[in-house]
Structure formats: structure tokens, C-alpha cells
Nucleic acid binder design. Structure first.
Lengths: 204, 204
DNA sequence: AATTGTTTGTGACTTTTGATACAACGGCAA
DNA sequence: TTGCCGTTGTATCAAAAGTCACAAACAATT
């Protein structure tokens, strides 16, 4: 598992490979486990090795998706915490059973300048997260919910099908279930999709 | 000017000091100049040495603020472009006459791993921008405009006074002038502020 | 088949935000 | 003083989004 990670990140430095061996631990988590909590100090850098993690902001009853973490990705805020102590401003919940690499942040601090491969990982993570968040931000500011919903469905569809409940969609998009149901119905009657239980089929 | 920058960023490496001398140029710009345009390739890393630059997203008639750049700050997207060619997704306009350090992105690519001080600058820039944008995002998702407006006024007030027109505020917050006028009036009648020409006074 | 819990549908209403149109005000230059 | 222009105020209407309440559909289990 760790070996695979080292390979995929092209970590050529033996010394870093050893540090990873010594200092990290691998844990597994079940769907639904909350692995990062808002307002808690971040002590461990978590990198997803297998499975999927949902990172989101919450506010009273509502939630909004920040991003999903897939294998070989890390939460940008934890990575940031490696450089200076900080509390999390997000939550992370396991979306699909997963395996996670845990590295205490204090070890990571210096890797960025010491190991080229780690430096690349850091930069890549920051760059991609920043661009992604910037897009989300602009969409949130300028696009009506209906469009954001439709775009989201398209981005999540596999074989033109999205298997999510209206409630789940609401929590990705920062709104409420009723609003999603209404918009989906409208999209359906516009011939853009078909609705079934726990499943949405996008047409053409 | 450049000397000052080198000092403030604690650039101790003589080699980097020389590279900066050789490869960068310093330019001055007047208020209103558009220095980064949406959808254009980013070829130059621009660092503000003096003055203030407003970075924003636009969509048809509307705009929304991303951040202001102050001295010794750089546009995070340009910094990102140093690692891989990309187009700008934002505009930047000079908000106060300014002096700017320009460094072609191709030179910067390797500095991040070569010079410790530059590495710190990169990380600091990414970290702060990311945290900032994350906050903006959550506010946009969950706070009503009225609250975002009031918070914004407080954050921009000096001596409890904000010297901006309603139109300017609208462009910071991603909405239209009429909406801002209406909300300001409401806040005034709630005793939260006093309105004058081109000026808003926050009460207590 | 009956029960239960989750998911979806929907009507009715409110609040927020946006769009349009126009009036009034204030500063400033001719 | 007059006229202009940028700024602010506001009424009206429309659209988008949020809230509440409840019913219907469906799936899973006993």
C-alpha cells in the first residue's frame, strides 16, 4: 500500500522512503466515519490511498462540498497545517471505505525543501486545489443553482447516471432537499433527465 | 525598491538576489490600469512592491472580489502559472498607483526548490490565499448578502469609515448597485451606520 | 400483508435578490 | 447660476431560493 504510494508519487529518494516507513501509519475507515472535524487542530497529514473522502463545509443545517479526495490525494488544509499549526475549517467524512496514510505534521514540515518529489507533491496539491476552489467560487457567485446542479450531475455521471439522493445533492451544493427536488423536476420536464429512486439519468 | 523587497522577504541567497536583479523588471502603473486579463496566458509573475491591486472575477455585468494585493504580495494564480503554463481566470486592476516587480515565469519554476527563502514565499502565498478563498467561499454559500456586506464594511473601515461608492461595493460582493443601496438603507435605519456621499460611517 | 423508515413530490407562502425605470441630490466646471 | 454628471434613493415587478407541512411512493423487514 505504502509502496504503491511511493511509486505513484515517484518518490525516488531513499531517505524519504525510509522516513515514510518509520513515521507514517496506515489506517482503514468505514463509510460514514468522520476523519477530520471542523475547528480541531490538525495534527496529522492524511493521504488517501484507497477509497474516497468527502471534504465539506458546514453551517447549521446546511453543507457545501469542497472536494472529494481520491487515492494519492491529500486534504490541502492538512498540508497547509504542516507549515504552521492551524485548525481545520472543514469536515471530512469517508464516502467509500478507505485506507489512509497518516503522517504527523511535524515531520512533514521540512520535506518540502529537502525532497524534490515531496516538493512537487506539495505544489501540485496547492495548485490544483486552488484552481478548483476558484472555479467553485465563481460558479457559486454567478451561476443560478439550476445550472450548478445540472453541471454537477454531468460531472458526477458515469454512463449518464448519477446515484445520489436529493438530500445528498443538496449537501453537495449548499442548499436544501426541497429545492433540489423542485429543480430536478423542472429539469426532467424540460427533457434533460429522467428521475428514478436514488438515481438520475441524464439524457443525451 | 527591489532591494527593499529582497530585504522584506529575507532573501539571504546572493545567487537569488542576482537572479532577481538580472531577470526582473520594475514597472509603474496608474490607478485603473488593467494588468492581468481573464483568459490570457500568464507569462510574468507580478509582485506588488507599492500600491494596491484588485483581483476579481467577472461575469457579464457583474464582478466579485477575490482579494486585494498589497506590497510584497503576488497573485497566487500567477505563482501557480510558474509551475505549469495556464491562463488567467481572473482580472487584476490597479486600485492605487503602484510599482510592480515582473519576473518571467520560466525563470521562477526552479527557484522553489533551489532557494529556501523563495520556497517560503511560495508556500506562504499558497497557504494564505487558500485559507482566504475558503473563507470567502463559505461566506458566499451560507451568509445572506446583508451580512456579507456588513462584515465587508467592518473589514475595510478605517476609523469606522469606508470610502466607497455603492457601485464599488456591489463589484466587491458580486451583486448590483441597487441591491447594495437598498441593503445599506436598511442597515442605516437599523442604526448600524450612517450614509453620506461616497462614504459610510459604521456606528459603534 | 403489514409495518416502518427513507425518499420523493408538491402546494403555499416568505424572503432574498435581481431588473427596470426614473427621480432627486450634490459637487463641480463652464 | 446653470447645466452636467456621477451618485444615491426608491417604487414596482419578477425570479430564485428557502421554509413548512404533509402526502405519496418505494424499499426493507418482520
Amino acid at each position: 500500500m505504502l509502496h504503491n504510494f511511493i511509486h505513484q508519487l515517484r518518490i525516488a529518494e531513499l531517505e524519504l522512503q525510509n522516513e515514510l516507513q518509520e513515521k507514517s501509519s496506515v489506517t482503514t475507515h468505514k463509510k460514514g466515519d468522520l476523519i477530520i472535524k471542523n475547528n480541531q487542530y490538525i495534527k496529522v497529514l492524511k493521504i488517501v490511498l484507497k477509497g474516497k473522502v468527502r471534504v465539506y463545509q458546514e453551517n447549521e443545517e446546511r453543507e457545501i462540498l469542497i472536494y472529494y479526495l481520491h487515492p494519492i490525494e491529500t486534504c490541502t488544509l492538512s498540508l497547509s497545517a504542516c507549515f504552521e499549526d492551524c485548525k481545520s475549517t472543514v469536515n471530512a467524512v469517508v464516502a467509500e471505505d478507505c485506507t489512509i496514510l497518516n503522517i504527523p505534521v511535524r515531520f512533514v514540515r521540512d520535506w518540502n525543501f529537502k525532497y524534490k518529489s515531496w516538493n512537487s507533491f506539495t505544489i501540485k496539491t496547492f495548485r490544483e486545489s486552488y484552481h478548483h476552489l476558484m472555479n467553485q467560487y465563481a460558479n457559486l457567485a454567478f451561476q443560478p443553482l439550476k445550472d450548478r446542479l445540472f453541471d454537477y450531475l454531468i460531472s458526477k455521471a458515469s454512463n449518464a447516471v448519477v446515484k445520489k439522493t436529493h438530500q445528498e445533492l443538496a449537501k453537495e451544493l449548499g442548499t436544501t432537499r426541497e429545492v433540489i427536488s423542485r429543480l430536478l423536476k423542472k429539469l426532467e420536464s424540460n427533457g434533460k433527465l429522467n428521475l428514478r429512486q436514488k438515481e438520475i439519468q441524464i439524457l443525451k
